[in-house]
């Protein structure tokens, strides 16, 4: 009974954070601000959902739950790397845009920025 309440709370909390990350992505005004939602809130939210699944499957079928732990670890390790690469890509894109606005033409003509 207690476990079921815990699973329910983890489900609600996790889903709330997942939604929060996406709300941040949708409504914040600038790319670097939008980056914050998905890297932190969504990662924690999915982490909580995986934990809920681990508790649930662990009690229902008794298969341990090492695979869930693998999914969670993978997400927590990759989230900062994705954020870092996206930030670098955004900076490169911004440099490219300011360069084309300044009058200089780039090899690719600054295509596909919008």
């Amino acid at each position: 009974m207690l476990l079921e309440i815990l699973i329910g709370l983890l489900l609600l909390g996790g889903a709330a954070f997942v939604l929060l990350g996406s709300i941040g992505l949708a409504r914040l005004p600038d790319f670097f601000m939008r980056l914050h939602g998905p890297t932190k809130a969504t990662t924690l939210g999915v982490g909580a959902l995986v934990l809920a699944s681990l508790l649930h499957v662990g009690t229902e079928e008794g298969t341990g739950g090492l695979r869930e732990v693998a999914v969670m670890l993978f997400l927590f390790i990759t989230a900062p790397i994705t954020a870092h690469l996206l930030a670098k890509a955004a900076q490169a894109e911004e440099r490219r845009r300011t360069a084309t606005q300044a009058g200089g033409t780039l090899p690719d003509g600054g295509k596909g920025t919008g």
Partner: peptide
Amino acid sequence: DTLSINTIALVMLLDI
């Protein structure tokens, strides 16, 4: 990327 992570969340929920 966020869409793919959210899909994982959805799959975990279906799993439960």
